[in-house]
Design a protein around this nucleic acid. Structure first.
Lengths: 312, 312
DNA sequence: ATATGTTATACTCGTTTTGAGCATAAAGGA
DNA sequence: TCCTTTATGCTCAAAACGAGTATAACATAT
């Protein structure tokens, strides 16, 4: 395919598969982790693997005992060079996003709440205080510290990402926010190679290598995608009430939605159908149980246009 | 990061970077190709490359003389095993989508129209006859040929992908359509390992390896993305008329849009601003010239929600 | 100079889709 | 029976959409 088979040194590449597996646990979005929550399940792509996806499923099952259902590719990146006894080697990391319904049966698995890693991302009750208390002043200082040129840009990016200066909060910008904080040296990962002894990072657990960035990427992807594809259902039990569905969406988006309008939206889109039964377990008036309309799984792959199409 | 450094054979992996570079040429969407239109620019990821993107830019410049501006990652896949003198080796292909404005200056470059590869995707004037004449009957036959179970599924997928049985045409399903045709053995690429001598493939140029699939992936991505992100502008000259903008969108989407409503959409979204000048080069009444509002480039990264958010 | 063809723009109108609430129903517990 | 709580139904105005109709402003052919 290309004239490169004569040079062999450059093939010294390791390919790593990394999985962000998401689920819901009591209205909290959680991720499947290993090593006490400091890493995502991962492993090298091997010759024995039939495909990237197969390799990934294998590693996740092996490391967490959890079988994967729905998965989609997230992003591929090249890790910075690594030195191994005088040799340079590179790692290509291919990350995936998996969605599961955690039936709570197996408790060996180490699920951790998203917002333990990103405390500034959960706006369901109210904007997290850490934003005003710590992030705002620190980023402000960071912006000031920039050269005459950088100053403007830095503050502009900050204001946009966090909704300062009267701008609205946009829950989709998870990755931008993380990268901004990283650049500003406010997260633990950014302080690593710097001889330690730096200022304290923001609240929020650290992770190995770029795993936390992958988590941010996955959250962002999911927050975007639930708006135009029926992916939430991968996280739901077979039957559920509309409020449960709403709580899940809210957990993912990190913000509250208008109940009646949410219900209208779901119903008009014909995503669900009543099972005919109700449950009283929610307290208050019993709620109808719904199930996902299976036809949608196939049909809705075809989404709707937004262009003002002309008639034939 | 994982306990795998003791086994070395499995690192026998080559990483390839592939670029789909898109531009507009006289109301036709085109892709930058090499080898007389049979391949996309590509090359191995090497130790000397600072990053995946840098490596890609290098190969494209080297092979086509074209410098890249905007690029985004498309998809990563593992090619089937390859045998090289008794050895098994794998290739990981990382594909990117680049958008440029082809100013027509450099003619060494080999730009080819998208629809030469996918004649069934251009519905601007009318649904391409090949769909009714050839694709419909062939896919119908293919569906019939399936087992009792497969039959239904096959036809259902077909109808959905191509808008048969009264279903609407959905321009975003480029990849699904290509994969369907591939599965049904109707494109040249699918007939390769089969000892030749098969039936004739559909009209539409063949490409090397999976390059045509990558092209399909990129077209699909672009058709989806123009609806919620202001990416079209990467393909436009600095100043343009609204009709030119419309023609570009139509070329990408492969369908016509309602002129007045398109204009209303663009203006209400405040994507553009008048330059104050007009051009008479369009024939008819002179058109105002517009330019992209640069602020949008930054701000619109933040798109709008679709969830019925509750107020604070 | 006038009629024609072509593209550019302004507006109109009826239909949907949103955003925000008000109101009512159906349980359980005090 | 009266709250409290969650579930659902409905209303209303504002904004966005889909489809046209009506003009305006040029170039060219009579």
């Amino acid at each position: 395919m290309n004239a490169s088979d004569d040079i062999d040194m450059r093939h010294e590449v390791e390919v790593e598969l990394i999985a962000l597996v998401a689920a819901m646990a009591e209205s909290q979005p959680v991720a499947l982790t290993v090593r006490q929550g400091t890493a995502l399940p991962s492993g090298p792509f091997e010759l024995g693997h039939r495909s990237l996806q197969e390799g990934l499923r294998g590693w996740v099952r092996q490391q967490t005992g959890h079988p994967l259902g729905y998965i989609e590719q997230l992003y591929t990146f090249a890790d910075r060079d690594r030195i191994a006894n005088g040799q340079t080697r590179r790692t290509i990391s291919i990350s995936y996003l998996g969605l599961t319904h955690d039936d709570g049966a197996e408790r060996k698995q180490d699920w951790r709440g998203w917002y333990s890693y990103f405390p500034w991302e959960d706006h369901r009750s109210e904007p997290p205080p850490v934003i005003g208390h710590t992030i705002l002043p620190q980023l402000q200082a960071w912006a000031e510290n920039g050269g005459a040129v950088a100053r403007e840009t830095r503050w502009h990016r900050t204001a946009l990402a966090f909704g300062f200066d009267g701008r609205p909060w946009n829950e989709e910008l998870v990755l931008q926010r993380y990268e901004l904080l990283y650049e500003a040296g406010l997260v633990a990962e950014a302080l690593r190679g710097h001889g330690g002894g730096h200022e304290a990072p923001l609240p929020g657990w650290e992770m190995l290598a770029d795993h936390r960035r992958i988590l941010a990427t996955g959250i962002a992807r999911l927050r975007t995608k639930i708006k135009y594809r029926p992916v939430v259902f991968e996280l739901m039990p077979p039957e559920f009430t509309l409020l449960q569905l709403q709580r899940t969406v809210e957990a993912l988006a990190g913000r509250l939605v208008h109940k009646q309008n949410f219900r209208r939206l779901i119903e008009q889109q014909e995503l669900v159908e009543e099972t005919g039964q109700t449950t009283a377990e929610t307290g208050g008036r019993p709620a109808k149980l719904f199930r996902f309309r299976p036809a949608v799984l196939v049909e809705r792959t075809a989404a709707g246009t937004k262009l003002p199409i002309a008639r034939a």
